[in-house]
Structure formats: C-alpha cells, structure tokens
Computed example of a mutant assay.
Amino acid sequence: MSFPERLRLLREEIDLTQNELAKFLSISRQSVSNYEKGTRFPNDPHLILKISQFFNVSVDYLLGATNIRNSFERDLNKKNTRINEDNSSYYLNKKEALEELFYEVDNLSINYIEKLTKCIKIFKDML
C-alpha cells in the first residue's frame, strides 16, 4: 500500500476530515487532498514525522515500506533483557529480536499472522 492510500485509510479510520487533518498539520486542505490523490508528496521530513506521530504509526508504515504499524520504540528502551533458561542465562537485545521477528512475519498473510498470534498467546499462557 502506498503513502496516499495509507494516509487516506488512517484519516478515515478515525473519522477525520481532510480539513481537520490539515488544521492539525498546519497545511491546507488542498495539500492533504493532493497527498491522498498521489499528485503531491510532503517535501518536509518533519511533516512526515508529524503525520506518523499523529496516527501513532511508524514512518515506514506510513510510507508503505512495512505493514507493521508501530515501531514499539517506547518498549525497547531496555538495551538487553536477561533470559534464564535451563540453568543458564544470557542477554538478548529485545529490539533486535523483535525486528527480526517482524521481518519474518511482515510478508505473511493476515490469516497466518492471526494463527501465529494465537500460538504465541497459548505459549505465553503456559509460562
């Protein structure tokens, strides 16, 4: 999905008009319309960041580079997590582990992602 499609989808998901979004972003309604039609693209990186923060999605998701909405950066401030397993322990970089997981899951169909999520919940409940 491309930036114009994502922008429109995100705006419509929260029942926001182009005019309301334009006011928040301090741009014209016509600019929002042009972005959604794909006839123009924001040339200010700060504006792209502001849009992604407003909708609580990653810039990669907004630009269509991934189907993962959030980067989960706020949960990844811990550099390493200590893992205790079978009388041994090691440290795992949580951010790298989740990025690898997201990379593997990103191209799966929604059906497989839902099945994988159910499996993870079952596994989590067993712990």
Rank of each mutant, 00 (worst) to 15 (best):
S2Y: 08
F3V: 06
F3T: 02
P4K: 03
L7E: 01
L9H: 06
L10D: 03
R11A: 15
R11M: 11
E13R: 13
E13G: 11
I14P: 04
L16M: 15
T17H: 14
N19S: 03
E20D: 09
L21C: 08
K23H: 02
F24I: 07
F24D: 05
F24L: 05
L25A: 02
S26H: 12
S28R: 08
S28M: 08
S28I: 03
R29A: 05
Q30C: 04
Q30S: 08
S31M: 13
V32K: 03
V32C: 06
S33K: 09
K37H: 12
K37T: 12
G38V: 13
G38Y: 09
T39H: 03
R40D: 05
F41M: 05
P42Y: 08
N43T: 13
N43M: 05
D44C: 01
L47G: 07
I48R: 04
S52E: 00
S52D: 04
Q53G: 09
N56Y: 05
V57A: 04
S58M: 01
S58R: 04
V59Y: 00
L62Y: 10
L63E: 08
G64A: 14
A65F: 15
A65H: 15
T66F: 05
N67E: 15
I68D: 02
R74V: 06
R74Y: 05
D75K: 09
D75E: 14
L76F: 13
L76Q: 00
N77D: 13
N80D: 09
N80Y: 12
T81S: 13
R82P: 10
E85K: 06
D86A: 09
N87L: 11
S88N: 01
S89F: 11
Y90I: 09
L92Y: 03
N93Q: 13
K94D: 06
K94T: 12
A97M: 14
L98D: 07
L98C: 07
L98R: 01
E99L: 15
F102C: 02
Y103H: 14
Y103M: 13
Y103D: 12
E104L: 15
V105L: 15
N107S: 06
N107D: 10
N107Y: 07
I110C: 06
N111M: 02
N111S: 11
N111A: 05
Y112N: 14
I113N: 01
K115T: 10
K115M: 09
L116S: 11
L116I: 15
I120W: 11
K121N: 11
K121R: 13
K121S: 08
F123I: 10
